[in-house]
Design a protein around this nucleic acid. Sequence first.
DNA 1: AGTCCACAGGAAGGGCAGGCGA
DNA 2: TCGCCTGCCCTTCCTGTGGACT
Length: 402
Amino acid sequence: MQLSLDNIFKNYIQKDDIFQNKELLLTKYRPENLPHREKEIKTLGSILAPSLRGEKPSNVFVYGKTGTGKTAVTQYVCSKLEEVAMNNGHEVRIIYLNCKMRKVADTEYRLLAKLARELGRDVPPTGLPTDQVYEIFFEAVEDKKRMVILILDEIDIMVEKTGDNFLYNLTRMNEDLENSKISIIGISNNLSFKENLDPRVRSSLSEEEMLFSPYNALQLQDILKSRAEKAFKPGVIAEGVIEKCAALAAQEHGDARRALDLLRVAGEMCEREGSKRVEERHVDMAESKIDMDRILEVVRTQPRQSQAVLWSILKLKENGGNEVQTGDIFSVYEKVCRNSGLAPLTQRRVSDLIAELDLLGIINARVISKGRYGRTRTITLGVSEPILEKIKNTLVSEFYFE
DNA sequence: AGTCCACAGGAAGGGCAGGCGA
DNA sequence: TCGCCTGCCCTTCCTGTGGACT
């Protein structure tokens, strides 16, 4: 065992590496230039430019599908702005917050605490009244004369979780600030999310709006080519590979992130195989691997109760249940809990867990009415057979079912 | 037209953990 | 130590619902 592992490591070191700089293909990498986004960069730049004269720029609402460059463009423009401001003796402070991150934007308190910490204040994870945290944040902003630009990425998720109270207070904050000014850039994938906002918040958040349209396949090819040139060694990529990654990502609403992931994982598959050339079949392998990894990670990190519900659904499906319904799931779930030493939750709670699994894309739940036989959810599985097998293998050691 | 089923899903609140200030 | 605050997970209670059946 030890010996074969030694061999793997030794081979890896000796092997001809196909990558030159893999970092360039990671989504967190911020490139120096953003092809096909020149117009957006200029627009956002001119919206934010007043901050260089100490004037408050308009709040901006940026929307578009995932992987269309919203975050990249915003961060690019803001970092340049920060640089220019510093050289001209103004202070512009950029705070970037990804609201999708767990334990960051789930509650108003956490949001404020995070922002206050970004400005150098110490706020405990819980314990203080929210008003007090507002005050701490307010004081931190007001601390010196400066412009604070707050980038709220995935703002729709924040509003979904905490409501729009936070945004309302933030947009009103400028009325009380004397030294500083604060502007908000809200980024969202969800085009319709604004409809549910308080009208006052909506109008003040959308002083300016920018829509990022999806990249087409040709634009994606450009992006991939420019990155691949530096990320891979010359001649490593076979003809058609970049075109295939671009085409697959273009099918999925022109997502550049997806395209880059495909190319990177295809490279990794090729490397692992010991090949010296990335070919189209590696892209196919990459596509299924990315899907599988994502879902397995989600399943693994679910709470045990949620896993028990999923396991019950799998067992019902295995026993030939085509039309799996909430009631059936609940009875199997109770049995699973009994056999596994888990305290069963109520049907109400299980119903919520089913809805969460639906949201995660592992199952598809549809509410249907069966007339006098009641209203229920019918559940189908949202993943392919090979992934299903992997999920079962992950859960089989946790739960028992006779 | 009215009834009824089997839930969906909203609202309220309990209990616990983590933390603060007095 | 105590009272108070927050977040989180959960239960209890309740109203709403679409369509088959009477």
